[in-house]
Nucleic acid binder design. Sequence first.
DNA 1: TTGTATGCGTTATCAG
DNA 2: CTGATAACGCATACAA
Lengths: 338, 338
Amino acid sequence: MSSLAEVARRAGVSKATASRALSGAAHVSPAAKERVAAAAAELGYVVSSTAASLVTGRTKNVGVITPFINRWFFAEVLEGIEGALIKAGYDLTLFRLPSEPEQRSRLFHYFLVRKRVDAIVCVGVELAPSEVQLIQALRRPAVGIGGAIPGITTMCIDDEQASRLATRHLIGLGHTRIVHVGGDLDAQLDFHVHARRLAGFRAALDDAGIEHPDDFRPTTFSVPGGYEAAMALLADPESRPTAIVAGCDEIAIGAITAARQLGIVVPSGLSVVGIDDHPYAAMFGLTTVRQRPGEQGEQAVDLVMRAMTDVDADLPPRAIDIPIDLVVRTSTTAPPPS
Amino acid sequence: MSSLAEVARRAGVSKATASRALSGAAHVSPAAKERVAAAAAELGYVVSSTAASLVTGRTKNVGVITPFINRWFFAEVLEGIEGALIKAGYDLTLFRLPSEPEQRSRLFHYFLVRKRVDAIVCVGVELAPSEVQLIQALRRPAVGIGGAIPGITTMCIDDEQASRLATRHLIGLGHTRIVHVGGDLDAQLDFHVHARRLAGFRAALDDAGIEHPDDFRPTTFSVPGGYEAAMALLADPESRPTAIVAGCDEIAIGAITAARQLGIVVPSGLSVVGIDDHPYAAMFGLTTVRQRPGEQGEQAVDLVMRAMTDVDADLPPRAIDIPIDLVVRTSTTAPPPS
DNA sequence: TTGTATGCGTTATCAG
DNA sequence: CTGATAACGCATACAA
């Protein structure tokens, strides 16, 4: 309510010094600084960020675009971003990317363009070239998380490597009849995660010289998805694999649940390995490949922050790899003697 | 990049008419409107929302405060809010309420006060009186979701009623040895949901004249929480209850998982009922009390929108009840003959 | 219907 | 170290 002018008057200084005293940018005599601070406190003064933005051109606000809020990976990344942003004094404007093309375009042409964000973080979104252009036209630093976007700095795990790691672990235990229960290839609105995880799985089998006909069951990236796919897959004891590489932990958990329901003991009757290290993984004893989405979010913020402060130190155009590691628990063991 | 002035010049009109033509607020001759629109399109013009905010005092932006992003209920509410906001042309600024008091206070005194939001939605946050005052001092409409906040319009389900409904269902099936596995009473940073659900549970037993010593197992509101508590609770076949009322579906799912692991068949050996209707509930056949968090979010947005547009039609101070209903699936049945 | 002029609350650029 | 003063980009009251 109260403006800088009032504070200045009360402190007996000009608006300019009041501004300087409060922002701490320039040198102000301790006495003046003191008086301004007191006046501001008494009046309950707080800067109008809109006014400040108007003149500085910076909003202290970054936009985050994500297709989902309600999925573990995305929510986790979001939390990481939010924490890092708050720490830096920035607001976070959240945009959920709609699946309908029309609304999606509205997001880009209406919301994103309002000059309200100093930077953009895209999580798990694959951007069309035209969309990338649009973002670049904003002349604001942008980074992606979850997969490579040509033209934009992105950070992600090597999905192919992740599933290869998981598969190798099973092969190392002696498994040869392994099936990948992963994301539907047609339904990857996000990156080609599904395809890449499938590819890594197959590469590992190829590397080991293992045949793999009928090696893939597509489903949705969720516990129920894994449950249903596993129910179908495991129904016939004859054709049943000895191990499953799940596309993510949620699928793995669904598969374990299905196995239990069918009376199959995990891991002696069936080994299951996931990808993510979901908070529920430990409870299910799930062996998995850990990625830390929260940290990915924090790092993304670091990146845009640096790009904003450092004299336009351009972002590295290359994708940045996030480390992953295998967490062995109790859902995997050697296959049963056939 | 391009300003209103440039558009005006290109269209051969004044800034004022250009502004009017674009906002559509006042009457502009069709010809002029046409020319302005064309000029704007050619230049790729888009309003500077900061400049507009500075003069109008409205930001087209609402703040959302929530303690968690990564929990089903909260994420779901958030999605509902986001969708409704986007539809109305508003941005959503997300604030995660930190658990540390110091940072929490920073949120209120630094972030919230920057005059950047036209309204506030608090989800699952219990506000201290001083915090309520602070929000009221902003003179912006505010609504809460998830529990009553004195002084602020809130929408929530009747938690006591929800667990009473769940408990009555079990009693109706003939159960008398029922335990509530719910949220820890010390750990309810959000509302007193835990306590209220426990109270409803006990009230239902009292109503039916059923004794209930040792009727409560506190745990965390999560699948692993339910799992661990149920593992301990069900270990001893002698003292085992015939039914569990879970504080939420996640706990219920953890409990079902634990039961299965212990060889207890659900529901013939143990009935379990939850609260929420979590997306995983169906897969576990979980009988539960449904609440629709997404709709709660949408309704909250409706409310603040109305308060913002309608000539300061004040928000109803009373809490608004959200309907709930019992969804009977396959996790509940009559108790086994003792 | 249109144009002119003013102000929104800051920060930044100068002199002093 | 401090004080005028000019932007920043837009919306609106008022006059035409």
